[in-house]
Amino acid sequence: MEPDIWGIVWLSLKVSAVAVGVCLPLAFALAWVLARGRFAGLVLLDAVVHLPLVLPPVVTGWLLLLAFGPQGPAGRWLEATLGVTFMFRWTGAALAAAVMALPLMVRAMRLSIEAVDLRLEAAAMTLGASRWRVFCTLTLPLALPGVVAGAVLGFARSLGEFGATITFVSNIPGETQTLPLAIYSALQVPGGEAVVTRLAVVSVLLSLAALVVSEVMARRMGRATHVL
C-alpha cells in the first residue's frame, strides 16, 4: 500500500514545530541559568540537560515511558489535571522530539548568552534600567542569533528523531509515524525502495531548507552565527 507522503510530512512538521515551540522558553531559561547562575547544583543541572545527547535514544524513550506512561507519576498527574495523554499520540512524539532537541537548543542559546558583554548590562543599569528592562532591551536582542540558531537546530533534530519516539509512542501511521519512522517501515516492505527514496528526498530538502532559513535570518541580523 502506498503511504500518504504529504500526511507524513505534515505530521513531521507539526510534531517538530510543537516540540520546538514548547521547548523554546524552557531551553532559553535553562541556557540563561547555566550561563549566568552560580549555585552548587549547576554542574549536575548541566549534566542532566545534556543527558539525552549521550544516552542511547532507546533509553531516553524508555525513561519517558516510565515517567509519562499511564502508570508513570508525570503521566498520571497530567491525565488527572489536564486530561492530556501522551501514549500512542502525536503529542508523545512531540514530547520525545522536544527532550531530544533540548540539549542542542540549550547549547546554542547558552553560547550566545555568554557572549553578551556584562559591561554593557552594567552601563544600562547606571542609565537607570531595571534588571527586567536590561534583559528585554539588551540581553535578549543581543542573544537573538543564538536563539534562532538553537530553534532551527532543534527543529532539524526533531524532524530526524527516531529512537526515543519509536520506543515511547510506537510507530502508528497517521498518529506517531513521522518521516524517519515511515522510512524505517517502508524499508521493511519488499519493493519499498521507491517510497524510501521519495521520503528520503523530502527529508534532505526539509533539513536543507531549515539550514538555509537559519543562515538567512542570521545574516539579516547583521552578523553570522557560528553556533551551527
Binding site: 552601563a123 547606571t126 543581543l142
Partner: peptide, 12 residues
Amino acid sequence: GYVFQDARLFPH
C-alpha cells in the same frame, strides 16, 4: 552619569 573608558555603546 557614568562615562566608561570603553564607550560601551549598545551595538544593536
